[in-house]
Design a protein around this nucleic acid. Structure first.
Lengths: 341, 341
DNA sequence: CGTTAGCACTCATTGTCGTCGAGTGCTAAT
DNA sequence: ATTAGCACTCGACGACAATGAGTGCTAACG
């Protein structure tokens, strides 16, 4: 579809624009060592590329900037990805050399590393806990009418919730109920817990019906509130250093999005496995229509272990980011898959 | 020190400036119904007030704006505080009508209410847990070499941490150690836990010395990591709507501060009990030298239950904020003191 | 004597205008 | 096919005048 020369010029323009954030003129392309043509020739090609929709002109007599389509072509066919800076690599390696035993800690640190290395905003989504199973369930009385319910999964994740205890429920009742639940439910995947609780364990708890409801609610809560804690952001203020966010209003809509975990979760659902690149308006959410989102979902033997992503301006360094995500996601997969057995 | 008329004019100027965010001229003050003087008279008084240091002039031929000293006088002597909007009050009441049994949930919601009602940034610091005592300690094995340690306090707060178990430690050893710890340490204030662990329980755990170290570390961690979770921010992006934050750089330094819990904790330490107002450069941290911080620390019978604060531009609505904080802090104190028995 | 009308003065803001220069598109020469 | 040359476009920038909000000062007033 494009001639070799057009591809070369498109590549040069986008590279330049990524570095300078300013419209690229024919002269500056011509002056680069790697393109041996005069400005006039470049101009002709640039006009063609604009006709084809790969470039845009902010106004006559300005240089060209890449269009969404241009970025898309660049990402799909031109960018050299997979080359990671030696120094960045060693930063990542030393990070993974630290052994951490808190899953959340790992995720959080990974997010930090990413945002530091890229100067963009990183979003890391940890493993879905409904692939986990119940390891331990406990109810610890705090006062006469409240107790703390604690749910531990096989991956070491702990969820807790304070609940009120009905006045007509005795200590022995509770103890017995918890015992029953533990013996019957340990090892059950969280996702199947609810149905199992109703169908099989229900009748055994026959005479504790109200209790059953209570405990069910607790377990349910542990599952749902879980989503919130799976996601970590880092470098949210890095965006402010990008010239495209000089405008405070744009900043606000973006930062407001960052505070809305559910909206972010929605953006992160329906992503391809492996590396995925969403450029500008390809993104579902309006707040990031002038951003690009690059994600890497990693899974082992079909089981998803999470997603790491970088959000930056459309004018972001795709090559570098994709390379980093590839390295980091495979390392994360290795680390987490070991941990999740 | 100031004549009645000067006080009146100072008050009018600050009120105007708080509303408009623009330098206030003599004419606009004169036109207000409550000041019956001509612009010329006002001008004379304004010049005096400037000489006294209560007002500043951005440049000749501009109106006046309050100085730090002016705000200070306004807060100390002029502002009518304690008057809370009827509608705001009902919002707060309905909020406290909801019964929530998670302390963190209460704190978080209170922060949200505050930022919504004021359009500033709210910071809420929950009760210090070192006034709590140990309720339950447990070690749940997850795999052959890891376990989850769980600490529950008498207030229902749960802290958990995943730890590695030395290979040479048997299941029975662990169980026994946990048993000993539980029987000896329940009810002990967290702050005294460490010393007690060493002095009294240490020899009883004589033959499990290495274990002792491990468990100590866990409890220690639970105490220290605690600080991080006591603080909640809300409405961090509200600042962006203030005209004084049109500049992206200022926004960045402020938002970066918000991400640094320890720095915030330092700002929140050394605050007066009751209502405290820190105006502009009275604040220790440079990032908020053009902000005012109003805080309300609430305690019951000498025991501190936390602090709620509002951070806004120096040009903030002191009267409204102080009123809201008074209401909310007393409500919070009542709610939490009940909960903490 | 306190208050105020009047007036000259200051200075940020706004709009206009010409210059500058980076960049383009087109044409003709190579 | 490539490129030198050239006229053209248009945003950025600085100079400049007009505007107007606001001041300080002086003199008149009740």
């Amino acid at each position: 579809m494009l001639t070799e020369r057009q591809r070369m010029i498109l590549n040069a323009i986008i590279d330049d624009y990524i570095r300078s954030a300013e419209p690229v003129g024919s002269r500056s392309i011509s002056k680069r060592g790697d393109v041996g043509y005069s400005p006039a020739t470049i101009r002709n090609e640039m006009a063609d590329l604009e006709d084809l929709g790969f470039l845009e002109q902010p106004h006559t007599s300005a240089g060209r900037i890449p269009s969404i389509k241009g970025y898309r072509y660049y990402v799909d066919h031109l960018v050299r990805h997979g080359e990671v800076n030696e120094q960045d690599l060693s930063t990542i390696r030393t990070f993974f050399a630290d052994k951490m035993n808190q899953t959340e800690q790992i995720i959080q640190h990974a997010a930090m590393i990413l945002s530091n290395l890229t100067n963009y905003t990183s979003i890391v989504l940890g493993p879905e806990t409904f692939s986990n199973s119940l390891k331990h369930f406990q109810l610890i009385p705090i006062s006469s009418d409240t107790a703390v319910a604690i749910v531990v999964t096989n991956t070491g994740h702990v969820e807790n919730k304070t609940v009120s205890i009905p006045a007509d429920m005795s200590m022995q009742d509770i103890e017995q109920a918890v015992n029953i639940l533990n013996t019957r439910l340990i090892g059950v995947p969280l996702v199947r817990l609810k149905s199992k609780l109703y169908s099989e364990v229900g009748e055994e708890l026959g005479r504790y019906v109200d209790k059953c409801e209570l405990l069910l609610g607790v377990l349910d809560e542990a599952l749902t509130s879980e989503d919130e804690n799976r996601m970590f952001l880092s470098g949210t203020t890095n965006m402010l250093m990008q010239p495209e966010f000089k405008d405070v209003d744009k900043v606000k809509t973006l930062l407001d999005l960052f505070d809305e975990t559910p909206a972010l979760m929605r953006i992160f659902s329906a992503l391809p496995s492996g590396i995925g690149v969403r450029i500008g308006t390809e993104n579902a959410h309006v707040a990031i229509n002038n951003c690009s989102l690059i994600t890497a979902s990693f899974s082992v033997e079909g089981q998803s272990f999470g997603t790491i992503g970088i959000l930056g301006p459309t004018r972001m360094d795709y090559g570098k980011v994709i390379g980093l995500l590839e390295v980091l996601s495979s390392d994360m997969a290795a680390l987490l898959s070991g941990r999740f057995k």
